[in-house]
């Protein structure tokens, strides 16, 4: 008995630990091999396309950034750190970093706060819920090109521009939106906020609906008001979701292009450089000045910023998981097993 015990444990462990499907005695060896190779055939088309047009260009950006490479010019020559040296001496680069940051902040912060409030309201029971939810995605479904062109006329510099008319009614002077440094950034932030608020509200709403109802009931029994419930139950419960949206919108902020390009009328970034965000600067350097190597260096710096943001997120998420004492993957697999068992 005692001799056999370890063997049994081993077998059980191997059976439970290996994630291979239990082999059926009926299936022939040939079909077994087909089963083993089929997954590769299923992932192959994805990885071929993704590798060729996703991963390879990403890695190739790094290579190009170390070369002197001109649009329509001769083949690239190795340039060492020249492109980066140019970049870190370029005033336009620091300006674009700064503008990306400021526009990012004045568009992300109000956007997420509005979204949180909207999600809270959408979570109530109401009659025309479906209409309100769909109205949330209308801006997201609109192309940025159309949105920017429309907002461009709403923010027109002339006295007849809609925003200036409203200012006039309030007794204020018309503002020259496109030419001022902060006014231009504010106008861009308004477009970004309009476009993404509803999207984030829906993400928050989904997060709110996964918060257990009994938490609210317990809080209500303890005499907590609606607002206190929001502060002490909803916000903590939403923490992972909030983190997710913060990362998503900060990454989005580094990718701003269409709004400043069309609102600011070109890749120049405005007379004061008020529109010159990183992607616009990269586009101008690469496709208007024609210095692909330098543009790739800008892309690489942006990539490093993005990776830092993602790692920050991963680190925070790990802290969070440790709090709960439950690994993410484990949770996911239990959910699917439960579903399968049903």
């Amino acid at each position: 008995m005692a001799v056999h015990a370890p063997t049994t444990t081993e077998v059980t462990r191997a059976g439970a630990g290996g994630d291979s499907p239990p082999s059926s005695a009926r299936s022939s060896r040939r079909s077994g091999r087909a089963y083993r190779n089929a997954p590769y055939a299923y992932i192959a088309p994805f990885f071929l396309l993704f590798g060729a047009f996703g991963l390879f260009p990403l890695l190739h950006t790094v290579w190009i950034s170390f070369h002197e490479y001109r649009l329509g010019g001769s083949s690239p020559t190795f340039a060492g750190w020249d492109n980066y040296a140019w970049l870190f001496q370029s005033e336009a680069f620091y300006n674009s970093l700064w503008k990306t940051l400021t526009i990012g902040i004045i568009s992300t912060v109000p956007q997420l706060l509005f979204a949180l409030g909207l999600a809270h309201l959408l979570n109530f029971n109401m009659k025309v819920r479906a209409f309100f939810r769909i109205s949330m995605i209308v801006p997201y479904a609109t192309s940025l090109v159309a949105a920017t062109l429309v907002f461009g006329s709403i923010f027109a510099n002339t006295a007849g521009g809609l925003v200036n008319v409203v200012l006039g009614v309030l007794g204020l002077d018309p503002i020259s939106w496109t030419t001022g440094n902060w006014t231009a950034q504010i106008a861009i932030a308004v477009i970004v906020t309009w476009h993404w608020t509803g999207y984030n509200a829906l993400i928050y709403l989904a997060g709110m609906q996964s918060i257990p109802k009994d938490l609210y009931e317990a809080a209500a029994i303890d005499g907590a008001s609606r607002f206190r419930q929001f502060l002490h139950v909803t916000i903590p419960g939403l923490r992972p979701t909030i983190l997710f949206t913060i990362v998503l919108s900060t990454i989005g902020a580094t990718q701003l292009f269409t709004e400043p390009f069309l609102f600011g009328n070109g890749a120049g970034g405005g007379a004061l450089g008020q529109y010159q965000v990183l992607t616009l600067f990269m586009y101008e350097t690469g496709f208007e000045v024609g210095r692909l190597g330098r543009a790739a260096a800008i892309a690489c710096v942006t990539l490093i910023i993005v990776i830092l943001l993602v790692l920050l997120n991963a680190g925070l998420a790990q802290l969070r998981t440790r709090d709960k004492g439950q690994p993410l993957l484990g949770r996911r697999s239990t959910a699917s097993t439960r579903k399968a068992a049903r």
Partner: peptide
């Protein structure tokens, strides 16, 4: 997932 495709446009154009 989180790497924006915008960052690859230069080599993509070359390709």
């Amino acid at each position: 997932l989180t790497i924006p495709p915008t960052l690859s446009i230069i080599p993509l154009y070359v390709v």
